Amino acid sequence: MQLRNARVVLTGASGGIGMAIAEALCAAGARVLAVARHQEALAPLLKRYPDALCWVAADLTLPSDKRKVLAAAEEMGGVNLLINAAGVNHFAMLEQLEGSDINAMLAVNINAPICLTKLLLPLLKQADSAMVVNVGSTYGSIGYAGYASYCATKFALRGFSEALRRELADTRVSVLYVAPRATRTSMNSATAQALNDALKANVDDPQTVASAVIHAIAGDRRDLYLGWPERFFVRLNNLLPQLVDRGLRKQLPLIRRFSEKPENETLKP
């Protein structure tokens, strides 16, 4: 896909990965409709790219706000690239989560992208070439303790992407599923960051993820899994899940210990 003059709807635009993608798209010459609840974090980018970037305030859990996004996309002259990057996460064992936390992950991570994609599909189909990009996670392929509900939403998003790609196979709309590994963003709580440090997990910068996403879009990729050895573990989990079970069980005591730490307590590996 040619990014110059592309007309993009980008959700989660004020988050770490979303903002990095917004900046990369603007630099590539695309026109970007940034969807976020608040404008403050986007202010520097809006000032730097006044002709390329605009913002619409929207809470994507609300049907009325999804329609606001549709109206803004129509006003922009249509859309040929939809990037569903909005997401929320809570690191905790399942019994530690509040029902509201679970509902928020389901609403933002899976309900919102499905419903917004449905709403924008008529516009996407009008374009000569169009793409839906769903930003998932390595945890959409590997179930991981401490992230059961989050994994459920990302597994669902991966399945949605695969099915939608096949559903649109006879149209000009393609589907790209992106699976970042751990990334330095504010979505990660202090305990999640401390656990990553304790496990010596590889953690990417948002700009690294954004660059890979931009190249995948330009290359008309169907999926993108970031990081090694994470890509290997995804394949291993598909082929030999019991082997991965045994490996991850060794991490379970550490995961439980960090999940029980209060957020205001000093965290050490």
Rank of each mutant, 00 (worst) to 15 (best):
S64N: 09
D65P: 15
D65N: 13
K66C: 15
K66M: 15
V69E: 11
V69Y: 03
L70N: 06
L70H: 08
A71H: 11
A72G: 00
A73P: 06
E74A: 06
E75Y: 04
M76K: 05
M76H: 02
G78L: 02
V79Q: 11
N80W: 00
L82G: 13
L82Y: 12
I83G: 12
N84E: 12
N84S: 08
N84G: 08
G87F: 06
G87Q: 11
V88R: 14
V88F: 12
N89W: 02
A92S: 14
A92D: 11
M93P: 04
L94S: 05
E95P: 02
E95F: 04
E95M: 07
Q96S: 12
Q96N: 07
L97W: 02
E98C: 01
E98N: 00
E98F: 00
S100C: 01
N103Q: 14
A104E: 13
A104F: 02
M105N: 07
M105P: 03
M105T: 11
A107L: 06
I110N: 04
N111Y: 13
A112G: 14
P113C: 15
C115M: 12
L116K: 15
T117Y: 07
K118Y: 04
K118G: 02
L119H: 05
L119Y: 03
L119A: 05
L120Y: 10
L123C: 03
L124T: 10
K125M: 10
D128M: 05
A130Q: 05
M131A: 12
M131G: 03
V132W: 12
V132F: 07
V133K: 13
N134F: 12
V135H: 15
V135F: 14
G136W: 10
S137T: 10
Y139K: 15
S141R: 15
A145H: 10
Y147F: 15
A148H: 02
Y150I: 12
A152E: 05
A152M: 03
T153R: 03
F155P: 02
F155R: 12
F155V: 08
L157I: 13
R158C: 05
G159P: 00
F160C: 04
F160V: 06
R165A: 11
E167R: 06
L168T: 01
A169E: 06
T171L: 01
R172D: 04
V173Y: 00
V173A: 03
S174G: 12
V175E: 11
V175D: 11
L176W: 03
Y177N: 14
V178T: 09
A179Y: 07
A179F: 06
R181A: 12
A182V: 14
A182E: 15
T183M: 15
